[in-house]
Write a protein that binds this DNA or RNA. Structure first.
Lengths: 214, 214
DNA sequence: GTCTATAGGCAGATAGAC
DNA sequence: GTCTATCTGCCTATAGAC
């Protein structure tokens, strides 16, 4: 608590920042205390003071990520735009992650799901649920506005959007081609609503730091 | 060579079978020789006789998987059906994998991409490419037939389909809900073509054993 | 809060007997 | 082809000094 006021960032936070980046890049299984210790220039043993074990660190990681994502969704919500603009801003959140050459944290953890400790598993499902439910409300708004024509139910379409975006991130990374994510997202919007504007991150709807829920 | 004729399956093949299942479930990083040795009831050391190292085993794994998948695509192709039926059969290949509670091998490896040896990385990209190109031809066939209306380009739509299906597998597994994959795939077909028939695996278009490329 | 030192486990890999 | 035995390295985690 004492070390995180003012301009400085506390060690606990820096551990989360570094861990997050590594897990989003290499996965939780291939992530080790040594990665963090080397980057932070402290010993591995010191990490255990902040997080007793890898499981607890993983849990803190995903909880912070979920809160940030929820905040970003809330920011989009309170901007009070049309449903299509909200969907566009939502895609922008994912695009920001891809542009950092990362995978969505929970998408990565979803792949590793079977190997995760139970508390982390629960948090992954929770993240996916909250995303799908938020999208579901946006889709229903679009239906009310008459700007979206839903083929299936709002909940099926919401899950399709989450799946397509997570999958687009998964596929774009091996190609090393960030544009592939944008064109795939555009094709998705096109298939859903017959339009295909290029997708841009919604600058006003993102939290301050560091680059969205990243 | 001497041990794989007749009805018996050679040790090399059994190693691949077991490794494939483990990698599709837990990932390549969390997969170890101990998993295979325990299942096969031989020692870890014996595995090195068949595959000199983990990298070579991984390479053999993904090459066999790609060949099987190509065979399955060829079988769909030579059945000579309409484009929509081909797309349905294609989705069936993925559904079979999900029904075994597995992730697509290359989808799993795509998540772990950064940690893979270079030869495996190349094979993952190759797999994605071949899938997208096959789908692209199907989409063009559908356009010729007049049964498919493409919003974007055939190549963008093809990559969207691969992404959505890989993502749907990724998301369905944490939910432990195979039906979620089917409803997501149906929503995708619906959004692409305005219909939403339930998706069924194409029985006639799959290779004999064991349950498709899965 | 961070350090040194170390325990204890499991990983991939090799040598050589059978 | 498979075994035992062993090497080396990395991992998480803990104890206790500072």
């Amino acid at each position: 608590m004492t070390s995180r006021q003012a301009g400085r960032v506390g060690t606990s936070t820096r551990i989360l920042d570094i861990s997050e980046r590594v897990v989003q890049t290499k996965g939780f299984g291939c992530f080790s205390y040594a990665d963090v210790a080397a980057d932070l220039k402290i010993t591995r043993a010191a990490l255990h003071y902040h997080y007793p074990g890898k499981a607890e660190l993983g849990e803190a990681l995903i909880k912070r990520y979920s809160v940030r994502f929820d905040d970003a969704l809330g920011a989009i919500e309170s901007a009070g735009e049309a449903a299509l603009a909200k969907l566009d801003a939502y895609i922008g959140l994912y695009a920001d992650i891809v542009s950092q050459r990362r995978m969505c944290l929970c998408g990565m953890l979803a792949a590793e799901y079977e190997t995760l400790p139970a508390p982390m598993q629960a948090e992954v499902v929770r993240f996916l649920d909250r995303n799908a439910h938020w999208l579901e409300r946006v889709l229903e708004q679009g239906r009310s506005e008459g700007t979206m024509r839903l083929g299936g139910s709002a909940s099926d379409t919401a899950l399709l959007i989450v799946s397509a975006l997570e999958g687009a991130m998964l596929v774009a990374r091996p190609y090393g081609d960030i544009e592939k994510f944008r064109s795939t997202a555009a094709a998705m919007l096109s298939s859903l609503y017959g339009t295909h504007e290029p997708t841009r991150p919604a600058e006003s709807a993102r939290p301050a730091e560091p680059a969205g829920p990243g």
